[in-house]
């Protein structure tokens, strides 16, 4: 118990909501991706172990390890023998452009649907996307 409460004294990194419609491992993957992209998690940062995460957020350890494995396969995380997992130095996501476009496909669909409902024109939406991407980079 004591070990665990000490571990919990560190501030929380993620927001995991078990009751959400998004599965927990997805929530974790999305948040790691976003934090890596925004530089909140610079390369080399050690992530808490599966056990620590499970205890901290009271979620099943297999859920955490599933998320970690998927992130590792994606190239975002690096597994180190006997040490915690770290953010890999190579930030660029792997896969072809087509594959990566496929990943954003659901978001685009949702965006287009919302735009249709709000009666927005295609060029206005495209301009907005262009502007947003220009700001981020």
């Amino acid at each position: 118990m004591d070990d665990r409460s000490r571990a919990r004294s560190a501030p929380r990194l993620f927001i995991l909501q078990p009751a959400s419609v998004v599965p927990i491992y997805r929530q974790l993957i999305d948040q790691v991706r976003r934090m890596v992209a925004s530089g909140q998690l610079p390369p080399g940062t050690a992530l808490p172990s599966v056990r620590e995460m499970a205890a901290e957020y009271t979620v099943n350890p297999t859920t955490i390890s599933k998320a970690y494995s998927l992130l590792e396969a994606e190239g975002l995380l690096q597994r180190n023998r006997g040490k915690p997992m770290t953010i890999s130095a190579r930030r660029r996501a792997n896969g072809t452009v087509a594959q990566r476009l496929k990943q954003v496909q659901p978001h685009v669909e949702a965006l287009v649907l919302a735009a249709r409902q709000l009666d927005l024109r295609e060029e206005d939406l495209a301009a907005l996307i262009r502007k947003q991407m220009g700001e981020d980079t």
């Binding site: 665990r4 056990r51 499970a54 205890a55 009271t58 099943n60």
Partner: peptide, 12 residues
């Protein structure tokens, strides 16, 4: 919550 944590402890 304590109970669930113990369950997870066992499950680890």
């Amino acid at each position: 919550r304590q109970f669930l944590q113990q369950i997870l402890e066992i499950a680890s």
